[in-house]
Design a protein around this nucleic acid. Structure first.
Lengths: 252, 252
DNA sequence: TCCTGCACCAATCATCTATTGGTCCGCATA
DNA sequence: TATGCGGACCAATAGATGATTGGTGCAGGA
């Protein structure tokens, strides 16, 4: 399987490995960990980011598979690699499944349609968030809101705003809803849509949005789901109005 | 998924066909069209909504494949069916690309989490639906509700119920929300989840659900979005309660 | 106590085969 | 001529099979 099959690139890696590192060591476990870590950080692996199989690594490093697995466990908890049964071990972060779906609808997504969808989903998320947020969570939200309100430039403020809404979705603690929101979030970042939104950012609206953000977080802190949903709805409606106005302006 | 092989259910359909309709006619093309159309509208087809293959239809109707294809062309332009090369011909609307995403979360999806997500999304969809449904749309919804209430067996009733909720999502007319709903819908069909739901179907609940379906559609017909959302919420809460009860029962 | 070697399971991938819709052509019949 | 039947072929898909890969447990040795 090394010469002809899809594993050819492993050979390149393997040569580099046997040349650079010494497979023999007193403490096999630590040595294996260090070797694999270095292998990832030097980036000497195929384009997929795919590492050799555990059995191959064990053979190359001259240690048992169990030892290799312990090393990989460490790297996995560090977030350096991710594994999938039947598929393999890969360097970097696991892929986001929502991205591909979003690409399907993003091209012809009308900003107003996206806003309508946000008005459907995000108030419900704020409601759930209010029911489940811990004190620590609320603190995080406040920090994000502060960042979004600081008058650096419109672009970074926009990023912190997105992070705030995303945090609310995450704290809501429903995996299915989180995936739905991720889908929405990806679509929202469409190119034309982003361009149109830029014009809707002024000093007045910034202070208005900051006020609304605080309303939402206050309601969440009070564990008042209804109020949180209402505040979120008001916020999104303000965004929507602003968007409509800027779209009309750009048409004239 | 009914008998042993994947094609067993076609036999059931075929029997009904040869009994009810006369394959012989003076004008084969028109007769074939009428026969297939009737077959779709009476709903006598397997759970997937899959029609027999073109070759089977030709043999059953006693006409050539070319004639069958012309009839199917007509039905396709009418939006009654959709076809996919290598896969088959299906009744209803083509599916959204959300399936792949759903498969990611489906395995470890807690039925209660799914219900919570439905409670977030579907009332909002009912609201939008009320704002945009035409008279024709309402008529379709009523037809679906009738089908879901007919006491055939719990399995097919469940299918028509799903079709009703899906139709509401489609009529809501927001592509992003439709994709989000499709995601939810796919997750809902997880295997264990389906098994647990079976126990929650009794004669009493069926009549309750029928009443709630009619409440939803009535509100949609009155263009009362608030009421439609509330009715949908009540319906889903009833489903949720029933689910919880059946889960507790199965634990003891 | 730590590591190795081994066996087995479950998920996935690669591959092949059968099926299915899409298309074209020749022929028969009215 | 027009319509329809029969057949052949292509491209895309589904189903089934075998190999590969990570996940797990167990026995034995240093």
């Amino acid at each position: 399987m090394i010469g002809a099959g899809p594993m050819t690139e492993c050979y390149v890696f393997r040569v580099g490995l046997t040349v650079n590192y010494a497979p023999e060591s007193t403490d096999n476990a630590a040595a294996a960990l260090a070797t694999i870590r270095q292998m990832i950080e030097t980036g000497k692996l195929p384009a997929n980011g795919r590492l050799p199989t555990e059995r191959e690594l064990a053979a190359e490093l001259g240690c048992g598979r169990r030892t290799v697995r312990r090393a990989l466990d460490t790297l996995e908890t560090e977030g350096l690699i991710w594994r999938k049964q039947g598929s393999g071990t890969f360097a970097g972060q696991p892929p986001d499944p929502a991205g591909a779906l979003a690409a399907e609808i993003a091209p012809d997504a009308d900003p107003l349609v996206v806003m309508e969808a946000r008005l459907c989903i995000e108030p419900a998320l704020a409601d759930l968030c209010a029911k489940r947020a811990t004190g620590e969570d609320v603190e995080k939200l406040r920090k994000l809101a502060r960042r979004a309100s600081q008058p650096l430039d419109a672009d970074t403020a926009e990023l912190w705003d997105g992070a705030l809404h995303r945090a609310i979705a995450r704290i809501a603690g429903n995996r299915v809803m989180l995936t739905a929101f991720a889908l929405l979030d990806e679509v929202r970042m469409g190119a034309e849509w982003q361009e149109k939104r830029h014009r809707a950012r002024t000093a007045e609206t910034m202070t208005l949005y900051d006020r609304q953000h605080r309303d939402i977080i206050d309601a969440i802190e009070r564990r008042d789901g209804q109020a949180a949903a209402a505040a979120m709805r008001a916020h999104l409606e303000a965004l929507s109005e602003n968007l409509k106005a800027s779209m009309e302006r750009s048409e004239t």
